[in-house]
Design a protein around this nucleic acid. Structure first.
Length: 282
DNA sequence: CGATGCCCCTGAGAGC
DNA sequence: TGCTCTCAGGGGCATC
C-alpha cells in the first residue's frame, strides 16, 4: 500500500504526538508480523523518549534517546491510529479493530498510538543508531527521489546498461528509493515514457523528464495527503485524496486525459499491473 | 543479467 | 445469500 507519499503522510501525523514524548507503555499482541519482533522489543522501547520521527524510502525511522531507532515498514496494509482520530475512519466493521491491532504505544502525554496491519506484510525492527545506515534494510537503498541530489543525470547513470523495462526498474529500491506501483505508473505517464521501454535506452532528455516527473508526482501526492485506495489513512484518520488525480493508475478502459483519443491500457509487468496511455507514452 | 512465477496474509468486489 | 475467483499500495526467493 503505502509508497513514499503515504509513509511521509504517516510520518507527519506521528511526529507531533511522538517527538519529545516518553513511551510509557508498549504492548505487543503477537510475536511477529512479516518477521518476528526483535528480542526484548517491549523492554528496549519502554521508557525511551522519542527524539525525532524520520523517514527513509518507505521506512519510518523513530529515533530514540537510548541509541536505538525503531524502524517500521508498513508493507501493504500497515497503518497507525492515534486515539483521538475520527471514530470510524479506520474500521468499517465492529470487531475488526481488535483483530488486527498488533502493537499499541502509550506516550507520557497519554496518547494511545496503535499499529494495525491486516495482511501483516509490515515489520518493525530496533537498530542501534551507529549501525543504522549499514543495516541490510538501508545499506543498499538508492537516493531519495525528492532530494536535490536526484536528477536526470543520476537517473540515467543508474539505468545505464539495463535491459529490464523502465517500469519494473523504477520499482527497484536500490536505484531510487520509495517509488511503488502507483507512482511509477503516474510518473511514466507524466514523463510520456512507455513502460515497456528498456531502461538503459532512455535518452538524457527522457531521464530528465522522468526524474522531474517523479519529483512532481511524489510532491503533489504528499501535498494531497497520499492516496486512499482501500484502507490508507494518515495517523490522525485523515484520508488521502491523490487518487482523484490519478491520470492512469486503475483507469483501464477510461479515456486518456492527455488530449489524445486513446484509452488507458493495463498490462502486467513483473507480476504487477501497469497502467499507461499507448498514445501519449512512447 | 532478466523474465516469470510463487510465496507471505487477509479482505474486497465481481460474477454466478 | 453464499460460493469461488481475482486482485491489491511490498518485497524476497527460486527457477529457467
Amino acid at each position: 500500500m503505502p509508497e513514499l507519499p503515504e509513509v511521509e503522510t504517516v510520518r507527519r501525523g506521528l511526529a507531533p504526538v511522538l517527538e519529545g514524548q516518553r513511551l510509557e507503555r508498549v504492548e505487543l499482541r503477537r510475536a511477529d508480523l512479516r518477521f518476528p519482533f526483535p528480542e526484548g522489543f517491549v523492554q528496549r522501547l519502554t521508557g525511551a523518549t522519542v527524539v525525532e520521527v524520520g523517514r527513509r524510502a518507505k521506512y519510518l525511522r523513530i529515533f530514540l534517546d537510548r541509541g536505538d531507532a525503531l524502524i517500521c515498514h508498513l508493507g501493504m496494509s500497515g497503518r497507525f491510529e492515534i486515539d483521538h482520530a475520527r471514530p470510524g475512519a479506520f474500521h468499517q466493521r465492529v470487531g475488526e479493530e481488535a483483530k488486527h491491532e498488533h502493537v499499541v504505544f502509550t506516550t507520557s502525554a497519554g496518547t494511545r498510538i496503535a499499529y494495525f496491519d491486516p495482511r501483516r506484510f509490515g515489520y518493525m525492527g530496533l537498530i542501534p543508531l551507529n549501525t543504522l545506515e549499514d543495516h541490510p534494510w538501508f545499506a543498499g537503498l538508492g537516493p531519495e527521489p525528492l532530494a536535490d541530489g536526484f536528477d536526470g543525470k543520476v537517473l540515467q547513470a543508474a539505468l545505464a546498461g539495463k535491459r529490464q523495462n523502465i517500469k519494473v526498474t523504477l520499482l527497484d529500491q536500490r536505484l531510487v528509493a520509495g517509488i511503488g506501483n502507483i507512482y511509477a505508473c503516474e510518473a511514466l505517464f507524466a514523463a510520456r515514457v512507455a513502460p515497456q521501454r528498456p531502461a538503459g535506452d532512455l535518452t538524457a532528455k527522457e531521464c530528465d523528464r522522468l526524474a522531474r516527473a517523479v519529483k512532481t508526482v511524489l510532491a503533489e501526492a504528499i501535498e494531497a495527503g497520499g492516496s486512499t485506495l482501500r484502507d490508507f489513512a494518515a495517523a490522525d484518520g485523515a484520508l488521502g485524496y491523490f487518487q482523484h488525480r490519478f491520470k492512469v493508475y486503475d483507469r483501464e478502459g477510461q479515456p486518456c486525459s492527455g488530449g489524445c483519443e486513446a484509452t488507458i491500457r493495463r498490462i502486467v509487468q513483473g507480476g504487477r499491473s501497469t497502467f499507461y496511455c499507448p498514445a501519449c507514452q512512447r
